[in-house]
Write a protein that binds this DNA or RNA. Sequence first.
DNA 1: TCATTAAATTGTT
DNA 2: AACAATTTAATGA
Length: 224
Amino acid sequence: MPTLDAIILASPWGKALDAGELEGVLADTAVKVIPAGGYVCRKGAPVDAWIGVIDGLAKMTSLSSEGKAVMPTVVPAGGWFGEGSLLKFPEVRRYDMVAIRETRAAYMPRATFNRLLDSNIGFNRFLLQQLNERLGQFIAVIETDRLLDPDARVARGLAQLFNPLLYPGTASFLQLSQEDIGLLSGVSRQRANQSLQVLEKAGLVKVEYGGVKVLDVEGLKHFD
DNA sequence: TCATTAAATTGTT
DNA sequence: AACAATTTAATGA
């Protein structure tokens, strides 16, 4: 089971910290265990931390009553989110983040985040790259939403979890139910099921109970 | 350890 | 959306 310092040291920004900075981050950052179905953060809550997933999996959800368009996003272990809200202080969270299964989340306080922002060039570079990646993903979602058939959408939905910059060290086995995969890909559960079988026949994934094993990330990215 | 049951997930219509 | 089949987890003998 990964630890906070292991996750940070494996991340692009963690490698850029000197010993003192790393020590400070580890001292300031709180780790919380979220049970399956629990909230990692709540919509409307004040933004006071940058949040990382140490272990487990969280998904972004929008309440249907709000009816706003939210990019369906899953954050696996190693991923960090909320920097956009943190930079726009004062701001409240605009989405719920729910643990798909038991998840350990890290909360880096705003003050620590700002300290790194002021002092560490590598941290700034990482944030720029992460924001740019998200922008690219957002554009890709808009494009694929119209252009690609459901099989390709599911393929890309899975492949995006293997972005080495955003989510370093994603395991090849994704513990995601087919319902979650449908949510992530923007298709119904039934269609996700059929797509997964197509992708399995193509030799790109192996479908198992409660998850899928990804065999060929590149194949998924370029599937169509 | 094994059997039973409930819950979750999957495959199909 | 609804249904049946399958897998897992939990419980107790």
